[in-house]
């Protein structure tokens, strides 16, 4: 990213935060939830978009993160941030383990396996109601002793910014290069000396850790955890957001989460119809704009920076032929 786009993003964020107090409580809540999904979409795009590991257990990890934190705090009276961290650690470990177990699976097989894992997590949480309170929902402690939602908005923003910064550093490091190489051709990546197994496990652990972070925050913001936080419908919603935004870049994935969440609330008067409509939008995106709907705008935005900074030495921009459809 060049200087100008960074400056614009920072300025826009500062402006938005400075004026956040003007939002009514309802839209503050929507913004917070959008950021929750933003963290999840970015971390899922790390896994599915960068490494090509099409996991369907991402929301299950959010749910595990939330429940782990809530239960540990309930049992041991941990401070809440420590509980959230424990949830993240739990998700990293479990995610790494899942990554290890399905090292030899690819494409649909990995999807089926993680779908199975997520169903087992959901069934266990709903059934073991003596521990998890099952379908009735587990009451959690509030993160902040605040009567308004505005402080939560700042926390959510900070978490999203931190997550994006860390994941951004990761995908810009050599690991990001290896991840994409594995996505393009796992065999050739191995022949090029890339430790494929280690990369896949790390990607699973990191992405699941961020899912756990989002889940932990959600648990202590909403005040109740239910098994449906990690169910298949939520996973489908996350997939809709990420694919519509553009699953191969972190910012476009977050953009997709923001746009979809905002539209879902804005179109609330249309009730149930919103969901299948977004299903259709997803299908149309896959059919006609596989890079996502936010991606072209994002690329245009980045080019804005290139042109200003060095009009002559700007590298020949590669025509965006990635979609192939």
């Amino acid at each position: 990213m060049r200087g100008l786009p960074i400056a614009i993003v920072l300025a826009a964020a500062a402006l938005a935060l400075a004026n956040a107090g003007r939002l009514n409580p309802y839209w503050t809540h929507v913004a917070i939830i959008a950021m929750y999904y933003g963290i999840l979409a970015a971390s899922w795009s790390l896994l599915a978009g960068y490494v090509g590991l099409f996991s369907l257990s991402h929301m299950a990890f959010a749910s595990i993160g939330g429940y782990t934190s809530a239960l540990l705090i309930q049992w041991f009276r941990l401070p809440i941030p420590l509980g959230i961290v424990a949830g993240v650690v739990m998700c990293c470990a479990l995610g790494g383990a899942i990554g290890w177990v399905c090292l030899r699976m690819s494409g649909p097989y990995l999807a089926i396996f993680t779908l199975g894992f997520s169903e087992i997590v959901r069934i266990t949480i709903s059934t073991e109601d003596e521990v998890t309170a099952g379908m009735a929902g587990l009451h959690t402690h509030s993160l902040l002793a605040s009567a308004t939602r505005l402080p939560y908005l700042y926390v959510a923003f900070a978490l999203l910014a931190l997550s994006l910064l860390l994941m951004g550093l990761l995908v810009r490091s050599r690991w990001g290069l290896f991840f994409r190489a594995i996505r393009e051709d796992e065999q050739a990546a191995a022949a090029s000396g890339v430790a494929v197994a280690r990369c896949r496990i790390v990607a699973f652990a990191v992405a699941s850790g961020f899912a756990g972070l989002a889940g932990g925050f959600y648990a202590h913001y909403i005040g109740i955890m239910t098994p449906s936080v990690g169910d298949l419908d939520e996973m489908a919603k996350l997939l809709v957001m990420t694919v519509i935004g553009g699953m191969e870049r972190l910012p476009t994935a977050v953009g997709g989460a923001f746009v979809v969440e905002f539209l879902l609330e804005w179109l609330r008067e249309y009730g149930q119809w919103r969901l299948p409509v977004f299903g259709i939008v997803l299908l149309l995106t896959m059919r006609f704009a596989r890079n996502g709907l936010v991606t072209p705008f994002w690329l245009q935005f980045l080019r804005l920076g290139e042109a200003r900074v060095s009009p002559l030495s700007a590298a020949p921009t590669v025509p965006d032929k990635e979609s192939g459809t």
């Binding site: 051709d185 050739a188 990546a189």
Partner: peptide, 8 residues
């Protein structure tokens, strides 16, 4: 030939 097709 097995290259990383969409990488430069």
């Amino acid at each position: 030939t097995q290259l990383f097709g969409r990488m430069t």
